[in-house]
């Protein structure tokens, strides 16, 4: 038996809107730790890792570890039917072939339940060890989204370079080139507007902007985004989910042939 009650149901709506176009089908794993997902896009270039810790739910019951295969597009369709202020409850029976999403309005005058069929998905779980990154950039998530969107009008790839001077986003295309440099800025009044650059070693990596733009659909989840870079690793773009966990996107770099 699984029963997860999330007062801030809009979080789950936002998570689904962030990942549904990147990943078609995925297994949601439920354990005592929390509700999690790891999935790759169909070309295995990008990976999504979601964790919603059990403590973040108003009620969390998971009698035994459960893996539920879902079509994310269909799940997003159902969650779209929840109001932004609704309380969302996810229910499933052990060994059952469906999952129920229950939506309660804040004053309990409307209760809806949507039942969705589960599917069998071959799990392709990658082991991702904790890593020390050569450079970590924390910046406003809206600024990161703006940069990715702007650069994708000029070129297909972005070179992200971190040096002592700051972080540079560059692209080139048929019409010309573009460079955007952000410097560390901790002097702002609001912490969510700060840009913080921690650099051990200068690093420069090239990524497909199409994926970066897809990741920025998670912008409504967090005011800040963390971009972790190492020359020998995929980049990690992380959106923290208020006191509950995170949504991380991993993207493999492009290299010169």
């Amino acid at each position: 038996m699984l029963e997860l009650r999330l007062v801030q149901g809009s979080l789950l709506k936002k998570v689904m809107e962030s990942i549904k176009d990147l990943v078609n089908d995925a297994n949601f794993d439920c354990s005592a730790t929390g509700f999690s997902l790891q999935a790759m896009d169909s070309s295995h270039v990008a990976l999504v890792s979601l964790l919603l810790r059990s403590e973040g739910f108003e009620h969390y019951r998971c009698d035994r570890n459960l893996s539920m295969g879902m079509n994310l597009g269909n799940m997003a369709k159902m969650l779209k039917c929840a109001g932004n202020d609704d309380i969302v409850t996810v229910k499933a029976d052990d060994g059952g072939d469906c999952v129920t999403f229950m939506f309660e309005s804040p004053n309990q005058d409307k209760i809806a339940d949507f039942e969705m069929k589960l599917m069998d998905i071959d799990s392709e779980h990658l082991g991702i060890p904790e890593a020390e990154y050569e450079a970590i950039v924390r910046m406003p998530s809206a600024e990161f989204a703006r940069i990715c969107k702007d650069l994708s009008t000029i070129g297909d790839t972005v070179v992200i370079s971190v040096t002592k001077e700051g972080v540079k986003f560059s692209t080139r295309g048929d019409i010309g080139t573009a460079n955007i440099v952000l410097r560390q800025n901790t002097s702002v009044d609001k912490p969510e507007e700060a840009t913080i650059i921690e650099m051990e070693t200068p690093v420069s990596l090239t990524f497909a902007l199409r994926y970066m733009n897809s990741f920025t659909k998670a912008t409504p989840l967090a005011s800040q985004v963390t971009v972790s870079l190492s020359s020998e690793l995929p980049v990690v773009v992380e959106y923290k989910i208020a006191e509950m966990g995170y949504l991380r996107f991993y993207l493999a770099p492009k290299i010169e042939e």
Binding site: H44, A208, K254, E257
Partner: peptide
């Protein structure tokens, strides 16, 4: 153009 690397070049299946 550049060559796109994939996830399994960095991480292995569990």
């Amino acid at each position: 153009g550049d060559k796109q690397l994939t996830m399994n070049m960095f991480y292995s299946f569990q």
